[in-house]
Design a binder for these strands. Structure first.
Lengths: 247, 247
DNA sequence: CGGTCATTTGAAATCGTTCAAAAGGAGTGG
DNA sequence: CCACTCCTTTTGAACGATTTCAAATGACCG
């Protein structure tokens, strides 16, 4: 149940059997199933609990009065949506299901107790939140400085590496359950231009994308056209010194 | 010394005299002065302590190999740069001085002790971090969806409101110690187009900008051309229930 | 088999960039 | 106080990346 989350957090720190049990417990709390297009939470709502993505993809997005929509993040299996968001009294953005989605609703008390009950998990969740912020900044870099090809290529590199970190890639392929229109909302490009950009990437043999499956024949090549530097994902286990000893 | 920080945090929670004393203490820790253009920390560095902006403006920025630069955030007096960043083993971005800058270097231990020694401050720092993330998302919204005029107008609204929250506005004016080129790096526009956009905003009597001083004669008007909705800054004191009683 | 949604294509329009240069300010040394 | 330099702001004109509009094609579903 919590396999993705555990796998993800172990990029930062090794967890004890007890830690893993606690995460399993959290992942089992009031599981919710949503269909593509439904919202997990909506802008303006009071945040109640902490949402953990168990399966499927979600997006963090905001809407302008006139309907323009920007996807600010893709949330993948194992991702926690704002561990401490309940400090705020209203959501400043929405979270929507990009595919069939399973989320666990973790009670805030479970999160608040972590420093005492499972300090390693607490620390790992900090790490997770910091990585989320780093990704957000990298998206600003893309939106502000990268051209269309670089932007889409970068998004693919990032997504592939994040999925690989939780074991959701097979060889050089992964699922990409989003429409071109949604890619456009994430990259700040029109749907039409996303389409042309994909054709461009295909023509350069940098990607294959068909039936919601993305293949990256040469990740290094895609990375260099995207100016992608993996460092910002902080997957290099900086926290070894906090590792659990048992098991 | 910590006046801006205290003023900012009190938008979230009332602080006790003891809390304020603790913040004053933190603000007094190894104060550093930088000239415009110098870096507080640089991408790749190992984060040592927590930087608190005491005076002046800083920017959080990233650079691409080929030199393209994106400013991801403006850091204003009272802002804390990543209270928990020291969990990571390298900085994924740099922080540079946009003006003459004074920062306090808070030892990480002081931050780590907060939950026990000053839980209210700890919580307020969480709020502050969440607001930072919210701002970052709103920048994505701007970069991805707003056109040049909206983008610059939005940045001005945001900056003005943030400065007002720490008492750094006078009437409808505030300082804006950044060049047009830096505005461009923040908004993803070329310097030339920033210049033309400013002229546009001036022609519509939405702003005055001269000698590093920004005046907004009609904030409501600027807000509506920017599609600015103040909610994402979370200045509406959601945390009243945690307020200190004494003093 | 019709209907809805996603992808693809073409052509024209536009917003913003780039290049190049002039003009304005501020600081420095003579 | 002038001459000089550097940096920022401003202007003009041409170019180009991306958008918009409109329509065709394809895929899936009931």
């Amino acid at each position: 149940m919590a396999a993705y989350l555990i796998r993800r957090l172990e990029h930062f720190t090794k967890l004890s059997r007890d830690d893993r049990g606690a995460l399993e417990g959290m992942a089992a709390s009031s599981v919710r199933h949503l269909a593509r297009g439904e919202d997990v939470v909506r802008e303006g709502d009071e945040p109640r609990h902490v949402n953990l993505i168990l399966d499927g993809w979600a997006s963090r997005y905001k809407t302008l009065e006139d309907g323009r929509r920007q996807i600010a993040a893709f949330l993948l299996p194992g991702d926690i949506c704002d561990a401490r968001n309940f400090i705020l009294n209203h959501m400043d953005h929405s979270i929507g299901a990009l595919s069939a989605l399973t989320v666990a609703q973790i009670p805030r008390s479970a999160i608040l107790d972590l420093p005492v009950t499972h300090p390693r998990i607490d620390r790992a969740l900090w790490w997770s939140a910091l990585v989320g912020e780093s990704i957000q900044r990298e998206w600003s870099m893309s939106l502000g400085q990268r051209d269309a090809v670089e932007r889409v290529a970068h998004l693919f590199c990032e997504t592939f590496v994040r999925l690989r970190a939780v074991g959701l890639t097979r060889g050089n392929t992964c699922e990409l359950p989003v429409t071109q229109s949604e890619l456009g909302e994430a990259t700040g490009l029109s749907t039409v231009h996303v389409n042309r950009t994909l054709q461009d990437l295909r023509a350069r043999s940098l990607i294959t994308l068909k039936d919601r499956t993305l293949a990256i024949p040469d990740l290094g090549a895609l990375q260099s056209t995207a100016l992608f530097d993996v460092g910002y994902l902080h997957l290099d286990r900086p926290g070894r010194e906090f590792d659990a000893n048992d098991d």
